[in-house]
Design a protein around this nucleic acid. Structure first.
Lengths: 279, 279
DNA sequence: ACCGCCGATACCCGCGGGGTATTGCTGCCC
DNA sequence: GGGCAGCAATACCCCGCGGGTATCGGCGGT
């Protein structure tokens, strides 16, 4: 199988429409139809169910969609990493969630910079759920993730720290100064539903809370009394003046881990991981 | 990048000889030379250092070799898994080391078979260090691995059991019946060096011990007083009459884990993992 | 019943991947 | 030191295949 075929199939499987997929790929529709037919013949599997009005995935098609995405990511990663290896000054790309792990990240960068042979570290702050993809397709070398929120499937990790969580409320909320609340109390707060974060595919789950996509937006919405949030304790130092925090007693512990793609331990990456585990 | 280019590069990088690589690929040498040049141009990286007498990998070339193998495995896995998904009766392929994990495996198969909706399980016994590759390229769905011997990088795992280890000696050896020995005692045994197992690339490390590649061969060599072995306790029940075992007091604990490729939890696999964790 | 949408088919073209023949370089051996 | 052998690169040709346009066939909606 050639990557071209995989790209074609992924386009059709995502669009579920040959015409749109062809436009997205920058080719005409007929060659795309043929390519998919050829792929189906070679695999001996019907990948798509077509009527003249709709295209749907069969079960083998769903399997291939998942696998093809992973394979294309691996190919893309090979390309990117080779390009990077050929560059003269090879910075490590570290990706972290904007607004999270701030203090730990600063300490890590300091500790690593003090090591002999440390290379430049290029810190990329990105949205939720984008980190895993960046690691997988070679755009990033290493990430700071938070268990149990982020999936670490298929990545190598080292645990860095574990902490409790706090509830962030609008300033002046009745619970301000409370010695501690429970999850059930938060869920029952009148008019303050928990926010909805985008899932891996970029869509939002259903629910009453507002849709948020980054930390600043979340804080703004809290200050406006539109929502509340449960965040790791370490985020307390970064809170704005118009929100307050109270401890959450029965929150699951949050573990910050440093994660990197398997089989990719360059010297520089190994040094960074070593510095991280010594914090 | 197309998989064809990756296959070509891997062949040349492994053979370090354009002629042999071309023969292995079933094409002539000139198109292969051109394809590699084209790849180098597109990546903007010199991958191979050629003189008229030798070909060597550059550092970006070494990166690409590693990444290309992973990418090709992913593509191959996509193909195999799609084919399998299209077959009517989809057995789960479980791979275990021949001669290891025997009892646990039997219990696991029984427990899973008793579950509702259980599918057939195709047990493949293979040599050391081949299991990971079979999982990665889609020939197997799930494996029983032994930490810390097997690498579980890039795989999802669940721990099943932890046990100590024992030393297997020729029958009649002076240590027979000893209440327990230490690693230092074993290393110092006159004329009984520890065996050498093949590494991931199929070669053997240097050392005094005999080369072994499977369990039966190892037992035979022990019975012949050519070597000794350190194996998990559970292997005791499978020992032949002409060898004896004594406990090893300071051995690292061996953990048997069930492992599967990330993002590949079919219903059947999930059932098997569930049955395993309930053992 | 007709129109419009969409995937499949028919047919054509040009590029690029693959082949053979040859060159050019270099280490080795007599 | 000159000739030879081995190997990658170059030159040149060809055909298969990937891609394009035109068209068909089937089906749903109005």
């Amino acid at each position: 199988m050639e990557t071209r075929e995989l790209r074609y199939f992924v386009a059709v499987a995502e669009e579920l429409h040959f015409g749109r997929a062809a436009r997205r790929l920058g080719i005409a529709q007929p060659p795309l139809s043929r390519a998919i037919q050829q792929l189906e013949r070679r695999l001996g599997a019907e990948l798509l169910e077509r009527t003249s009005r709709s295209v749907t995935l069969t079960e083998p098609g769903a399997v291939l969609l998942r696998e093809a995405r992973a394979a294309l990511d691996a190919v893309e990663a090979a390309e990117r990493r080779t390009r990077r290896a050929a560059m003269p000054n090879q910075a490590l790309v570290l990706v972290a969630k904007a607004g999270a792990a701030g203090e730990l990240l600063a300490k890590l960068l300091d500790a690593y910079a003090a090591e002999p042979g440390a290379v430049e570290v290029d810190v990329q702050l990105c949205g939720i759920a984008e980190q895993e993809r960046m690691l997988r397709d070679g755009r990033a070398d290493v990430a700071l993730l938070h268990r149990p929120f982020d999936s670490t499937v298929g990545l190598d990790t080292e645990e860095l720290s574990t902490e409790g969580q706090i509830v962030v409320l609008p300033a002046g909320h009745p619970l301000t100064g409370s010695p501690g609340v429970r999850r059930a109390d938060i869920a029952a707060l009148p008019g303050l539903p928990l926010p909805r974060w985008p899932t891996a595919d970029g869509t939002y789950p259903d629910g009453p809370g507002p849709e948020v996509r980054d930390h600043a937006q979340l804080m703004q919405l809290i200050a406006l009394s539109r929502t509340v949030a449960i965040v790791p304790e370490s985020a307390r130092t970064q809170l704005r003046g118009d929100v307050v925090a109270v401890p959450l007693l029965d929150a699951p512990l949050v573990t910050t881990v440093i994660a990197w793609p398997p089989h990719s331990r360059s010297r520089a990456l190994a040094g960074l991981v070593r510095a991280a585990t010594r914090l």
